[in-house]
Each structure stands twice: as structure tokens, then as C-alpha cells.
Design a protein around this nucleic acid. Structure first.
Length: 938
RNA sequence: GCCGGGAUGGCGGAAUAGGUAGACGCAACGGACUUAAAAUCCGUUGGGACAUUCGUCCCGUGCGGGUUCGAGUCCCGCUCCCGGUACCA
């Protein structure tokens, strides 16, 4: 046997690595050695198996893990499964098998696929969110959330117990809405005078986990409610694409909004891709401005609005409430009642899909009521319109049509007053072919609102004058006035909403919560955790086409012995909702550190070593988790940090998003995707051989098809399985190919045809060291200077490239070195072995095999990463280009240490240069040492 | 609309600090070996002009300007593509 038999080699070493636990991270470890925690985003154990796009990130992290081990780091490189939740459950429902069974089968299938790729995970740490030993601690964290609140005074979470003590002792004060303050305020209540039940009711307003009746995203198609993050822009479920309706339901919520500012601030401290930071920033959506109260004419009520432009208050000529606003009912006058009710009915019937799909034409109805503009005392009409959303701010706005495009459109539609209070800058006025005077006279003439900054005008009353002030100055001044007069105050508004945490599904973590007959809530004692999912034959959700049908969680059909529990003679009912998919993935990176711990979610010593101050050192995953998982996990981490369970505030210090693997796909005349595998061109050649060439037309089963290009997957029928590639070329080839495709972060096309390139490389490596008869090549003891130079140059290149995760260029360097070595008559043992070490993180099996054939009894992975010698890399002479007027005209050979004058005189004397300088004079001479000479002639 | 990211040969990509654009691989073409094919090896390969030869010159990193001795890289203005978001007051 002499050829490169990848199948046999790879199977053998995978077996050895697994049996000898080569890559297991010992439980007791030297904490003085620097650590490196490299993590892949938690995969779902999907039923359809992996395609070649999935392992892209895993290959990258595996290379880094192997590289860092050789550099002497303690490396933690675990893998596990996010196995609860909709995908697993939908798969189970579709196949009519219990999710426990399908989940287990899918995990085993995926584990064997991952093992076949030669990954150096610590297989002893594999976990799944569905393990009772795991979700015990998910439930435990929920209890911590329930028993904590966000203390505005300290800017961090504290336990409810501490708050109770502080309230009794007068160290904190609270109002009926749950605002906690350090000093008493007029609205603070007398805590000790309240009954325990009343106190509990007030505390429910501050707990980080709370039960509330709120308008939620109800998805009858899935039989469950969904988080905002799980609903697409066109109002459908991200999973399954079912319509989603707004509807009020009593649900568990997590008060993530209290962490808005911390979640925003923390982004400054992490090394993440800019787009992900941006998406989180936008999702949190911070706006600064003011809240202003407008008294309602005729009865004792005020409309509270939020505005980012309090400097335009004098220009508020009407108000608009969301149709669902609670004040609407009392505001509507007899004359307008019918119109108002009609509009509200219509608005409530519209799902978000309808609202989005309609043209943005403004609709609305006058309520008949008026409010008073607190700045100038003018009575302004109150309207309702669906362009004001109940879910943002206060659900009401002051309309400044002159300086807000939405208000402008609305005012134009209904003939409302438009009052200019800002003079736009001259540039804008010129563009609109107008002047300040003409603009103030007819503000609607430009056809749009001016919403930028400018100089305030028409803005004064007896106490305050804004006229002449810039927008920033005017804002400050009017806020001061609002606060003095009590009509408003500075306010920061966030777009982020609290996290809806209940799902009406079976396949999730049960809540450790009991409901008393009087409506009281009781937590399951820690000692009784986990609350295990009851085994159920019929676990299906009650899906329905009727958006008004009541949600019936599957657990309501669990045996009474599970649903009800008697404590001290009182019968409590268990919470029947389950936690959402994201719960388990919020903290799995902590459990990997100490997966078997039965006494704590993680031991503090191990946690502080592996998480340190910056958390996971390298986290690789898809950009699709930019807001959902990454925001939720950061939130939980911060709560656990505040409560002293973990040692760092941000869980993922460095994040890298891998790009998608894309591939050509083909659709028939009806627009239906056909198997890309079976498409041929006009000459009958497989499409995969010619797909990037010009003048090709494609056929499937004799009928013409059109070519497109997109993310590899089921829907486009263009998936390629890693199993096929491993079988034909070996997983070392697959690993190299996926990395050689281009930068990790970039999306790039899969081209099965190109794989032969890296496969040829590995075969050449093999032939270079293994003779035709299967014997190993004779290696010499000493090395030529030329080869040494090549070797050290390659060490430098590969090291630098791996440090910046530029795997494609590292492979190119190895290819170049191998091609160089193939041409040498002799190779020394150190050269050959060093080459294999450099190759081993990328193509571990062939490296281990050749290492072994050289007679080594140790594992190649236990070797130290080689270092290079700058002295060897130093050249005796280097070739540098000589430019004339910036164009290369010659190259000269110089000593690297040559002086500027020497180099320039050589350059000037060069035959090809004289041509250009003979008839001209040199006006400037530039020499960048070791790089270039440029002569400027005239 | 707004906010990000990007555009380099036939294709994937390289150029890390403003310093020889196109490393490395694929495909293509020519050649060697072979009865033949596969495999393997060698050579050519951004476009164009000139040259019998060594070669010489011009153009070229989406488009138009600019800064600089010198720009794929920096600045200004566009075009197109991809992603996110969408009446967020």
C-alpha cells in the first residue's frame, strides 16, 4: 500500500483520538497556564443532517483550537446541542415520533457526522439543553431572575430579598408602579403599612421575571406566542412562515429593558463585527428627548407623549393617539363616537401584515377632543391614527407637521395647521428654491417637512424664548422649562421591549412555578429542581386557523398528578407554558466549563479561569443570531454577573461571523427548484463543471432551466453533503477546501470541481514523503540554506496567517513550500517534521499519519508550534524596483543594508533608467528602504 | 427611505504600514509519459500594440474627480450588488 488512502488513514486516527481522549480538556488543570476558550454557536440537531455549509465555522474553530494547543494554551473547545424548541418539535410532529426520540436520534447522527470531520472537540463535555441535568440549571437561573430586580440606584440587579429589607429599613423607596428610589418621592408609598399581599403585588412590578397581560405575537399556525425577535418584518413567524396576530394574553416576561443601557454600553468592550454591533444598537433603539404632558380640555386627564424634538413644541398643532390608546374611549365626543369606534375596529382587525403591505397613505379620525399645548396654551385637536404605535413610547404623539415628515403627510391629508418653528439652513432652502421669508410664509410649499436642525423661530411665551437658538440649545432650554413648570422632563426612550418568555408548546423547559388557588405565585424550591417534563403520548400543539381561539398549552393535557401539587393542604397548579428555544442557549457556554456539576451551574474557580474578564476568547457563528441569541445571552450573563455567580460582564469577548456557502441552483419553467445535481449544459456536461462559464444554457430532464445563485440548502435543492466529499476525497481535503475558498467572514460559492486542487496538494505531500513501495523517504540530518530560508519564511507566513484567521493564505504558503520541497533532492528530518506540524491544524489526519510513519511515538498535536529565526530570513541581496515618475522601469539588486546614496547611484546608472534621465533632469529621488526607488524627472 | 458591508482576470481569491496588482488554486490552451484514457509532470494564461530574437511600450482593481514622487489601498461625488431595518415620534 503506497498511495494516499485517506479513508483508512482518517478512520484510524479518529478512532485513536477518541479512544485516547487526545483532545479532552482535563477537569483539573494548571490555572497558571493561559487559557483559550474557543466556541461554536450551539447547533440544533436537525433531522436532515449537515450540508457542507454547516461545518465551515467548525473547521475554522478546530484549526484555531489545534493551533492554540500547540502554542501552549489550555484550550476549551466543546460542542453541544440546542435541542429544545420549535425545530426539533416540528420535526417530531411531522414524523409522528416523540421529540425525545427524534432529538436523540438527530443528536447521534450529527455527532457521528462531526466526528467524521476530525474535529478536536472535547467529546466528554457534549451536552444538550434537553438533558434534565442541564435544564435543572436553566430553571434555576429563571428562579434567580424571578427573585431579582434591577436597582436603578446601583445600576445592577439585586435580590428581591435585599430590596425587601431595604424597603423595611428605609434604605429604598418604591411607588405603586415599582419605581425604586434612594430617597422618598411624592409618589413613594409607605411600605410597612402595606399588607404582605399588597407588597407582593408591588414587587411583581420590579421582578426581572414577571407575569403580565400584554398584547403579544400570537401565531395560531404554531399554536404559540412568539417574541418580537422571532417575527419577521412582514408579520410572519420566522420559523414556518405562519401569520402572526397581535392579541392580549397573560404571559411570562423577562425585564430585559432594564438592561438597555448596559447592553448598549457593553458593545464598546467587545471585539465584534461592526454590523452585529449595529444591529443590536438599532434593536435596542435608544432615543433621547423629553416626555411632555398635554392637559385634555374639559376633563381631568393628561396625554403623555415622548418626543426627540422638544425644541419644536411650539409647532405642535395637533395630537395623535394610537387607536388602542386607553384614553381614546373617554375622549371621543358624541358626534365622533361612531367614526372613532369604526376606525378602531378596523385597526384591530388588521394584522401587522396588512399594515405593512398597504401603501403608506395616512388614515385617521378626529376624536372630537382637544388638548392644551403647554408651551403656548393653544387648544389643539386630538386625532387617532394607526401611524402611531401603541407599543412605542406612550402610544401618543404631539404632531409637529412642519418638522416631521409623517405629521406633515397627515396634516396635508386632513388639512391641519402646519406651523413653522425652525428656520432651515440656507443649503436646504436653496435646494427648495425658497428663502427664509418665503418659507415662514408658506411652510408647505417645498412639499415636504424640514426635519433637521436649524434656528428656532415662533417659539416663545412669557417665561421662555427659544427664538434664535440652535436646535441643541433650544432642546436644553425647553427641557429646563418643562422641568421647572412640571409639564415634562428629559427622557430616554428605548425601542427594546421586554422579552416574552412563555411558549404554548410541549418541547421546552417547564417553568419552576406554581399557581395558588388565590392567584398567588409560588416558586418550586431549588431542592425540587428539575421540574421534569412529564412523558406524554400526545404532545402536539393545538394549531388553529382561528386567531381568536384560546391558546391551550399541551401540558394542560398532562396527568393531573403532574399538573397539581399539594403543599400544606393547599392545591397548587403548575405553570403549563414552557420556556422558549432561546432559554437553554443563553448560558450553555458556562455549563461547558463544568458540565457534570450537580451542586452549581458552574464551579466558581473553573468559571473564573475559563471566562476570565473577557469571556469566550473566540465565538464563531452565523450572523443570523445577531439580535436574538446574542442579546438574550448577554442579558442573562449580566444578571448572573450582578448576582455574583459569574466573573465577567460580557460573555463573548470576540465574535466572528462566518459567511454562507452559496451554490448555483436551477429552476424549471414553473419556477420550481430542481436537483442541481442532475442539471446539464447544452453539450451534456454536468452543470457543476461549467456553471461559472459564459454562453451556457442548462437543462433538467431535457427541459430548459434557469440558473440562479443562493445560500446552500434544502429549499434551493443545491445542498452538497460533507459525507459524499469525505468519502471521495477525505475530510482533510474537505477541511482544506472550505478554508481555501476565501476569508471565513465572506460568503462564497461552492464549486465541487475545484476540490481537486487541494486534494492534489495533499497527494503531493504524501508522495513527497512516501515512496512508491510504501517505504518512508530517507531524510537527511542537515539542511541547505535555501531550504532553511523557505522553511522559516513559511513558519512566519503560516503563523501570522493563523493568528489573523487567514486560513486561505496559510494554505497557499504550505502549497508553495511543498512545491519547493518536491524539487529538492534531499530534505532534512527537521524540515519535513516542521512542515507536518505547520500542516497539522489544517489537515490533521495526513499530518498525524506521516508524523507516525517517520517513527514518532508521540502525537503530532502534542508538539510545540515552531518559531522562526529572523536571522535566517535575512537576505544577502534583495531585488527592488526602480520607478521613473511612478512607473516601474527596472529592478536592481542591492544589499539590504545599503545606504540610500549607494542604492540611488546604482539605480541612476541602470541602463534602462538612463534612457529616461539622459534628456531630463532628476528633480526628486525617493528611496523607501528595502522597498522601492522612485526618480522624478522633468 | 434609513443604516451597514462590498465591487480586483473566464472563476474563487492574494496584495498585513500608500511602494513591482493578479500570490495560491480552479478552468482553459500547448507539450511530455501512455496503444489509449485516467493519474502524474513541464510550460503558457489580465487586455492591447509593436518585435525574427533578447524584449519594448500603452491600458488596466465598478464609474467620475482629487491628494501624493507613487493609490486596489486615503479624500470627495456617483452606480450597482448583498445584508439589516422599516410610520420608533
Amino acid at each position: 500500500m503506497s498511495g494516499y488512502t485517506h479513508a483508512e488513514i482518517e478512520a484510524r486516527w479518529q478512532k485513536v483520538w477518541e479512544e485516547e481522549k487526545t483532545f479532552a480538556t482535563p477537569d483539573t488543570i494548571d490555572f497558571d497556564t493561559p487559557k483559550f476558550y474557543v466556541l461554536d454557536m450551539f447547533p440544533y440537531p436537525s433531522g436532515v443532517g449537515l450540508h457542507v455549509g454547516h461545518p465551515l465555522g467548525y473547521i475554522a474553530t478546530d484549526i484555531v483550537a489545534r493551533y492554540k494547543r500547540m502554542l501552549g494554551f489550555n484550550v476549551l473547545h466543546p460542542i453541544g446541542f440546542d435541542a429544545f424548541g420549535l425545530p426539533a418539535e416540528q420535526f417530531a410532529v411531522e414524523h409522528g415520533v416523540h421529540p425525545r426520540v427524534t432529538t436523540e436520534a438527530n443528536i447521534n447522527n450529527m455527532l457521528s457526522q462531526l466526528k467524521r470531520l476530525g474535529f478536536s472537540y472535547d467529546w466528554d463535555r457534549v451536552l444538550a439543553t434537553t438533558d434534565t441535568g442541564y435544564y435543572k440549571w436553566t430553571q434555576w437561573i429563571f428562579l434567580q431572575l424571578y427573585n431579582a430586580y434591577f436597582d436603578e440606584v446601583e445600576g445592577k440587579a439585586r435580590s428581591i430579598e435585599t430590596l425587601r429589607n431595604d424597603l423595611s429599613a428605609g434604605a429604598r423607596f418604591i411607588d405603586s408602579e415599582g419605581t425604586v428610589t434612594f430617597k422618598p418621592t411624592p409618589s413613594s408609598i409607605r411600605w410597612p403599612e402595606r399588607t404582605v399581599d399588597q407588597q407582593e403585588e408591588i414587587l411583581s412590578h420590579v421582578r426581572l421575571a414577571y407575569l403580565a397581560e400584554v398584547p403579544v405575537n400570537w401565531c395560531p399556525g404554531l399554536g404559540t406566542v412568539l417574541a418580537n425577535e422571532e417575527v419577521t418584518a412582514d408579520g410572519r413567524s420566522e420559523r414556518g412562515n405562519y401569520p402572526v396576530f397581535k392579541r392580549p394574553l397573560k404571559q411570562w416576561m423577562l425585564r430585559i429593558t432594564t438592561y438597555s443601557e448596559r447592553l448598549l454600553d457593553g458593545l464598546d468592550d467587545v471585539e465584534w463585527p461592526a454590523p452585529v454591533k449595529m444591529m443590536q444598537e438599532n434593536w435596542i433603539g435608544k432615543s433621547t428627548g423629553a416626555r411632555v404632558r398635554f392637559p385634555v380640555v374639559g376633563f381631568d386627564a393628561e396625554i403623555d407623549v415622548f418626543t426627540t424634538r422638544p425644541d419644536t413644541l411650539f409647532g405642535a398643532t395637533y395630537m395623535v393617539l394610537a387607536p388602542e390608546h386607553p384614553l381614546v374611549d373617554s375622549l371621543a365626543t358624541k358626534d365622533q363616537r361612531e367614526a372613532v369606534d369604526g376606525y378602531r375596529r378596523e385597526a384591530s382587525r388588521k394584522s401587522d401584515v396588512d399594515r405593512a403591505s398597504e401603501t403608506r397613505e395616512k388614515t385617521g379620525v378626529f376624536t372630537g377632543g382637544f388638548a392644551v399645548n403647554p408651551t403656548n396654551g393653544l387648544e389643539i385637536p386630538i386625532w387617532i391614527s394607526d401611524y402611531v404605535l401603541m407599543g412605542y413610547g406612550t402610544g401618543a404623539i404631539m404632531a409637529v407637521p412642519a418638522h416631521d415628515s409623517r405629521d406633515f403627510e397627515f396634516a396635508q391629508e386632513f388639512g391641519l395647521e402646519i406651523r413653522p418653528v425652525i428656520v432651515p439652513p440656507m443649503d436646504w432652502l436653496r435646494e427648495k428654491q425658497t428663502t427664509p421669508e418665503k418659507y415662514l410664509e408658506d411652510v408647505a410649499a417645498p412639499g415636504e417637512a424640514y426635519s433637521g436642525s436649524g434656528i428656532a423661530v415662533n417659539s416663545f411665551n412669557d417665561d421662555v424664548v427659544l427664538d434664535g437658538l440652535s436646535t441643541t440649545e433650544a432642546k436644553n432650554k425647553i427641557i429646563e422649562w418643562l422641568e421647572d413648570t412640571g409639564s415634562g422632563k428629559a427622557h430616554v426612550q428605548y425601542k427594546l421591549r421586554d422579552w416574552l418568555f412563555s411558549r404554548q408548546r410541549y418541547w421546552g423547559e417547564p417553568f419552576p412555578i406554581l399557581h395558588g388557588p388565590d392567584g398567588s405565585i409560588r416558586t418550586v424550591p431549588e431542592a425540587d429542581l428539575p421540574v421534569a417534563l412529564p412523558p406524554m403520548e400526545d404532545f402536539r400543539p393545538e394549531a388553529s386557523d382561528d386567531p381568536d381561539a384560546p391558546p391551550r398549552p399541551p401540558l394542560s393535557r398532562a396527568p393531573r398528578s403532574w399538573r397539581e401539587i399539594e403543599i400544606d393542604g393547599v392545591v397548587y397548579k403548575r405553570e403549563l407554558n414552557t420556556m422558549p428555544q432561546w432559554a437553554g442557549s443563553c448560558w450553555y457556554y458556562l455549563r461547558f466549563i463544568d458540565p457534570g456539576n450537580e451542586d452549581a451551574l458552574v464551579s466558581p474557580e473553573k468559571e473564573s479561569y475559563w471566562m476570565g474578564t473577557d469571556g469566550v476568547d473566540l465565538y464563531v457563528g452565523g450572523v443570523e443570531h445577531a439580535v436574538l441569541h446574542l442579546l438574550y445571552a448577554r442579558f442573562w450573563q449580566k444578571v448572573l454577573f450582578d448576582l455574583d455567580f459569574v466573573s465577567c460582564d460580557e460573555p463573548f469577548g470576540r465574535l466572528v461571523n462566518q459567511g454562507y456557502i452559496q451554490a448555483y441552483a436551477y429552476r424549471d419553467q414553473r419556477g420550481i427548484a430542481v436537483e442541481a445535481d442532475s442539471v446539464v449544459d447544452q453539450d451534456g456536461r454536468p452543470a457543476s463543471d461549467v456553471q461559472d462559464q459564459k454562453d451556457r444554457s442548462y437543462f433538467y430532464d431535457g427541459a430548459p432551466v434557469t440558473q440562479e445563485y443562493g445560500k446552500m440548502g434544502k429549499s434551493l435543492k443545491n445542498a452538497v453533503s460533507p459525507d459524499e466529499i469525505c468519502e471521495e476525497f477525505g475530510c482533510d481535503t474537505l477541511r482544506l477546501y472550505e478554508m481555501y475558498l476565501g476569508p471565513l467572514e465572506q460568503s462564497k460559492p461552492w464549486n465541487t470541481r475545484d476540490i481537486v486542487g487541494v486534494n492534489r496538494f495533499l497527494k503531493r505531500v504524501w508522495r513527497n514523503y512516501v515512496n512508491d513501495d510504501g517505504s518512508t523517504r530517507e531524510l537527511t540530518a542537515t539542511e541547505s540554506d535555501e531550504t532553511l530560508k523557505m522553511l522559516h519564511g513559511t513558519i512566519k507566513r503560516v503563523t501570522d496567517d493563523l493568528d489573523r484567521m487567514s486560513f486561505n493564505t496559510a494554505i497557499a504558503a504550505l502549497i508553495e513550500m511543498n512545491s519547493f520541497l518536491m524539487k529538492r533532492d534531499t530534505i532534512s528530518r527537521p524540515t519535513a517534521e516542521t512542515f507536518l506540524i505547520l500542516l497539522s491544524p489544517l489537515a490533521p489526519h495526513i499530518a498525524e499519519e506521516l508524523w507516525n510513519r517517520f517513527g514518532n511515538t508521540t502525537m503530532i498535536s502534542s508538539q510545540s508550534w515552531p518559531s522562526y529565526d529572523e536571522k535566517i530570513l535575512k537576505e544577502d541581496s534583495i531585488t527592488i524596483p526602480v520607478q521613473v515618475n511612478g512607473k516601474v522601469r527596472a529592478s536592481i539588486s542591492i544589499e539590504p543594508s545599503a545606504s540610500k546614496d549607494d542604492v540611488l547611484s546604482v539605480a541612476r546608472e541602470h541602463e534602462s533608467i538612463l534612457k529616461y534621465t539622459r534628456d531630463n533632469s532628476i528633480v526628486k529621488e525617493i528611496y523607501v528602504p528595502g522597498k522601492i526607488v522612485n526618480l522624478v524627472v522633468k
